[in-house]
Amino acid sequence: IRRKTVTPGAGEHPLQYNYTFWYSRRTPSRPANTQSYEQNIRQMGTVASVEQFWKFYSHLVRPGDLTGHSDFHLFKEGIKPMWEDEANKNGGKWIIRLRKGLASRFWENIILAMLGEQFMVGEEICGVVVSIRFQEDILSIWNKTANDQVTTSRIRDTLRRVLNLPPNTIMEYKTHNDSLKYMSQFTGDNSSFR
């Protein structure tokens, strides 16, 4: 499918990168192998400026109001929110588990930090995900190079600052390769946060 190129409009503030919103929802009856995962993620739209972002975002349901097993993803245009994507395959993610009720606020804050280029790690950031689950919600930020410790530490420190996380917040880094191995061992499940 050819998509129209998205560019900032007149008088708008351009973003460093274009970003695409995705939505996915797990069908409980189906095992989430790569094919079904890919069928379940939907591109919603791409933004190129701060104003386009707000216009789009303001019309979205807040993640905290989503039900069931669903995810919002905001990734740089051209990167699919899947482990298998070229930009993600050597990468990993920081994971923060959130108690219920916090997802909407943390989601907005992590997006603003990404769009505003607050992480200062060059081209390393791929995107962010908020995963709505039954007991707790999960926020994650994906980067390209899992074994680059300078980058991953800087992302962690920036997250603590921009999300204003209490010092005792547990943050876990997972490489996509490990996620893939771990999940496929049990279920053949090998895509995003499942």
Binding site: L15, G116, E117
Partner: peptide, 21 residues
């Protein structure tokens, strides 16, 4: 090249611009 950096306050202020609504 130059990097386009925006702080949180600036981004939030843009939310109220007529173009963003």
């Amino acid at each position: 090249g130059t990097r386009i950096i925006y702080d949180r306050k600036f981004l939030l202020d843009c939310r109220n611009s007529p173009i963003a609504r």
